[in-house]
Design a binder for these strands. Structure first.
Lengths: 223, 223, 223, 223
DNA sequence: AATGAATGAGGATTCATTCAT
DNA sequence: TATGAATGAATCCTCATTCAT
C-alpha cells in the first residue's frame, strides 16, 4: 500500500510566497517561454495543479511575481527620496536607483521589458500602476524643480521621465544580453549631467526666457 | 482527384523575396510565437518545406525579414541627411525619421524590440550591424556639431544617441501596444528641443533665437 | 459533438504496463522506425502525450519494453537450471532456451539484435546488464564443468559463450527475416554436440596433451 | 547573368564510382538513418537528383556500396586460400581474414549486420550471393578436410560456418560499438583452437601432431 | 545528361491546464 | 485543499524523391 504523502498544510500566504520565490528564480533563469510550470512547482515544493489554485495561469504568475519584486524594490525609496534636497540630487537618486535595480536583477529587468510591458493588457495590470508611480517620481521632481525656480519652466516633465528611463534602457541593453557591464556611478553622473544641462535655468537669461515662454504659452492657448 | 500543382520554378531571389514578404506580414500580424510557418508558406505560395531551403529556421527567417525591412528603411536616408545643414536640423531629421518608421510599422518595430534585440546572439547578426549604422548617425552629427562649434565640447555623443533612441522608445511603447497614437511632428519638436537644450552652446542668443523661431513658426502656421 | 472521455485514473504501474504491452506489440509488428507513437498510444488507450509521462522518448520506451520482456524471459530459468545436472545437459538447456525464445518472439529478437544492441549507449542500459547475466550462465556452467573434470581446463569460458550465442544468431538470421523455420530440438542437439566435442576431455590422451601443453607454456614464457 | 556551371560530363562508370566512394564514407560515418543523400551528393560532386540516375534509391545505393566493398574484399582471397595447405591452416586464414575486415572497417561491418542483412529482401540481393560465397569457403574447407581424414566425418559443415562467423560477430560487437579493441592474432588463434577441438579426429596422433605443428611454428618465428 | 528547386507527408515531442480522486 | 495523472492541441523541421528546365 503506497504511502500517501500529503503536503504539510501551509497558510495560503506562505504557499503563495513560496511559489512566487520559485517562479522568480525560474523565470529569471530561463525567460518566459523556456520556463516550465513543472519546474516552478518542483522548486516551490508543490505539485503543478496547486499553482493554479493561487494563480490563474502562467502569465498571471509572471505578472504577480514581477509585481512582488517591483513592490519590494520601491518600498524603501519613498523615505530616502524625501530626505534628499534639490532637484538635481533627487534626479540623480532616481537614476542611480534604477541603474542599481537593473544591475542587480538583469534577468528580471529584461523579462519586464520583453514580456510584461509589451503585453496588450499591460495597462490593466498592477505592475503598470506600480511602474507608473515609480516613474512618476521624476515628473514630480521636475515640477517641484520648476516651482522652485531650479528648472526651466518650458520643460515637459513627462518628456524628462521618458528621456531618463529610455536612455537607461537603451544604454543597458547590451548588459541585459550579458554582454559586458556598466559602471553605475559613472553612468549616473553622465546621465544626470546631460539631463540637467537641458533642464537648468541658464542663469540671468532666465528672465528673458521666461517672458518668451509666457508669450508662447498665450499663443498656444489661442490655437 | 486533387490536381498536383508543381509550383513554377522561380529564381531563388524571387522565391526568397516572396517568402520574406509573406513572413513580414505574418510576423507583424501575429508576433513571433503565434506565427506559424504553415501560414507563411501558404501566403508565399510554397510548401512549408521549401522555406527551409532558403532559411535555416523560424528565427533565421524573422531576422532576415527584419534585416530586409531595416535595409530598405535606411537606404534613402543617406542622401537626404547629406542635404540637411546644421546639427539641430539633422538631429531633427533623424528623430523624425525614426518616429515615422515606428508609426508606419508599429508591429515590426515591437517585434524588433521584443524578440530581435534581446536575442543572446543579436550582436552577431546583420541586423545589429545595420542598426548600429542607423544609430551611429546621431553620433556623427553630434561630433560634427561639436567641431562646428554648434554643440558643447563636453558632450558624450554616444549618450546623446542613447537618449534619443531610448526616449523615443519609452515614449512610444503605449502606441506599440495599440494604445492611442502620437503626433510625429509635435514629438519630433519636443524631443529635439529638449535634446538641443542639453547640447547647445549656452548663451542668450541661442535661447532667444530658438524662442523667436518658434514664435515665428506658430504665426506662420496661423496664416 | 464528440464526447470528452477522460481516461480513468489508473495506478502508474498499471498504466506503465499497458503502454509496455502496446509498445511490445507495435514494435514487434513494425520494427523501430516504422513504429509510430500514436499507434502505441491508441492501443494502450491513452493519449500520445501520456506516454511521455512514463517514458523519456521512443527509444527509452523500446528499451524498457525489451527489458521487461527479457526479464520475464529469464525469471523462470534459474530454478530450472539449478535442477539440471551435468555440464552438457545444462548447456543444452541454455541453448534450447535461447532457441525457444527466438522462435517464439522472432520480431522482438530481431529488434534487439538490430536496434538495441548496436546502440552506442547499450552498455549503460539495464538490458545490457540483464543480457550479461543471461549469457553469463554459459560461463558459469563451463567453469563448473572444468572444476568437475568434465571439461578441458584450457577452454576459454567466454569464448564458449560467444560461440554458443553467436552460432545461434547466425543460424537463425534467415528465420528472423521470415525465411523458413528451424527445428529447436534438432538444432539444440547439433549445437550441443558440436560445442561439446570441443570441450570434452578427450580421455586417456589427456595426459600426453597436458604434457605437451606444459612444454608449450614453457617455450612461450621464454619468448 | 548567373554563370551556369555545368558539371564536366564524366563517364557513367566514373560518376558511379564517385558516388559509391562518397556513399561509403558517409554511411560509415553516420549510419543509415543519419545519412543524408544531400551529403553524399555534395561529396561526390554531383547534385542530389543525379544520384537517382544511377541508383534507384537510398537503400539501393547502400546495397551497391556494400557490394562493391565486399567484392573488393574477396577478390584477393581466392588465390591466397588456394596456396594454403591443411584444413586447420585454411580455417585460420578465413577467420583471420574476417577479423581483419571487421577491424579495418568496423562501421561498414556494423552497417551490414544492422541494416543490410536484416532486410526482408536481403536474400534477393547480390550482397547475399557474395556473402554466401564468402562464407561457403568454410563449408568447402570442412568438406575437403573430412575427405582428407583431417576432420571427423560426422561434422555439419554448415554448422561450422555458423559457429565461426557467429562467434566472431558476437565477440566483436563491443568493438563495433566503439568500445575497446581486439587482438586479431590472438583471437584468431583462440577461435581456430576452439573450433578445431570440435572438428579434429580424436586420437593421440592428432593432438600430438597439432602440438608439434605449433611448436614448430614458434621455433620458426624465432629465426 | 545534369540540375536543383519544389515537394509534402511525416512524427516525435512539449506543456499549460484540467479535474477526478 | 492537495494531488498528479491525463489531456490533446500544436508545430517545427526533415529529407527522400521527383521533374520542369
Amino acid at each position: 500500500m503506497p504511502v500517501k504523502r500529503r503536503a504539510s498544510r501551509l497558510s495560503p500566504e506562505k504557499r503563495t510566497a513560496d511559489i512566487l520565490v520559485a517562479a522568480r528564480a525560474v523565470f529569471a533563469e530561463r525567460g518566459y517561454s523556456d520556463t516550465v510550470m513543472a519546474e516552478i512547482a518542483e522548486r516551490a515544493g508543490v505539485v503543478e495543479g496547486s499553482i493554479y489554485r493561487y494563480f490563474r495561469n502562467k502569465r498571471d504568475l509572471m505578472f504577480q511575481m514581477a509585481e512582488a519584486w517591483f513592490e519590494a524594490l520601491i518600498k524603501t525609496d519613498e523615505a530616502t527620496l524625501g530626505a534628499i534636497g534639490g532637484a538635481r540630487n533627487r534626479l540623480r537618486f532616481i537614476i542611480h536607483r534604477h541603474l542599481t535595480a537593473i544591475h542587480e536583477e538583469p534577468d528580471l529587468s529584461r523579462l519586464v521589458f520583453q514580456h510584461l510591458r509589451p503585453d496588450p493588457d499591460y495597462r490593466e495590470t498592477r505592475l503598470f500602476a506600480l511602474n507608473r508611480a515609480y516613474t512618476a517620481r521624476v515628473v514630480e521632481v521636475v515640477k517641484a524643480g520648476v516651482a522652485a525656480g531650479e528648472i526651466r519652466g518650458d520643460v515637459s516633465a513627462s518628456l524628462v521621465r521618458d528621456v531618463i528611463f529610455g536612455s537607461i534602457e537603451h544604454r543597458t541593453w547590451a548588459f541585459l544580453r550579458h554582454e559586458g557591464d556598466f559602471d553605475i556611478e559613472r553612468l549616473s553622473d553622465q546621465l544626470v549631467d546631460h539631463v540637467w544641462a537641458g533642464l537648468a535655468v541658464p542663469g540671468v537669461q532666465a528672465d528673458i526666457g521666461a517672458a518668451l515662454a509666457r508669450i508662447e504659452a498665450r499663443m498656444a492657448a489661442r490655437d
